[in-house]
């Protein structure tokens, strides 16, 4: 079957390859920003690129189990890589905001507490922290079933991330709403409906 063939092929892809290819845009975009490739406002552009990639990687991570359920294609081996890469991009996004964009330490704190979209983005980052720290085999063994529970926080993080995007744009814009829609859809696929009893 085609799916089996595809899965066999995917098993040959080393996970380090995903990490490598997935992390390449970090230095590449930074270099582009330095050399004018990101346009007139490289700070905002870099901040946005890192943030959007983080959101995309979180959504890919969330799509992996529905993909297997509906098509049989299994990317489960790469889910940790996508999750950790998402965390890498969220961290870069945050660093650009702190160091290159806002710059002023007192304004950073004021923004975090006063601006709801920043508060929400910041909570999203904090939620991802324990997930990144426990994304290793030792933690999976040590935490046992609690590991799965803990990692359901991804659902919250992706919603916060999409909401953060929706809240920061001006006017009525479609793109962030598409991200939020995809996130909500992927989460809805996880809701287990109680089996309905058919009454005669």
């Amino acid at each position: 079957m085609m799916v089996d063939g595809l899965n066999a092929l995917l098993r040959k892809v080393p996970t380090w390859g995903i990490y490598l290819v997935g992390a390449l845009p970090v230095p590449w975009l930074f270099y582009q920003g330095l050399t004018g490739g990101l346009g007139v406002d490289p700070i905002k552009a870099l901040e946005h690129e890192y943030g959007e990639l983080a959101l995309q990687l979180l959504l890919i991570g969330l799509a992996i189990s529905p993909l297997r359920r509906f098509t049989g294609i299994s990317l489960i081996r790469f889910r940790r890589a996508f999750g950790l890469l998402a965390f890498l991009y969220v961290s870069c996004h945050l660093l650009v905001w702190l160091v290159l964009d806002v710059q002023l330490p007192d304004q950073i704190w004021a923004d975090i507490v006063k601006r709801p979209y920043i508060t929400i983005g910041m909570i999203g980052f904090v939620v991802l922290l324990p997930l990144a720290i426990t994304s290793n085999n030792a933690s999976v063994r040590k935490l046992g079933p609690r590991w799965r529970q803990l990692h359901r926080l991804t659902y919250l993080a992706v919603l916060l991330g999409a909401l953060h995007f929706v809240m920061l744009v001006k006017g009525f814009q479609i793109e962030p709403l598409i991200y939020l829609g995809v996130a909500v859809a992927l989460l809805c696929l996880r809701i287990k409906l109680p089996s309905r009893r058919i009454l005669a």
Partner: peptide, 22 residues
């Protein structure tokens, strides 16, 4: 007077590249 979503106290002058100071 801040914009509700961001401070208006400072600005980023464009044209100064990636390390432009506010």
């Amino acid at each position: 007077v801040d914009h509700p979503r961001w401070s208006q106290a400072s600005e980023r002058p464009l044209g100064g590249g990636l390390f432009a100071r506010r």
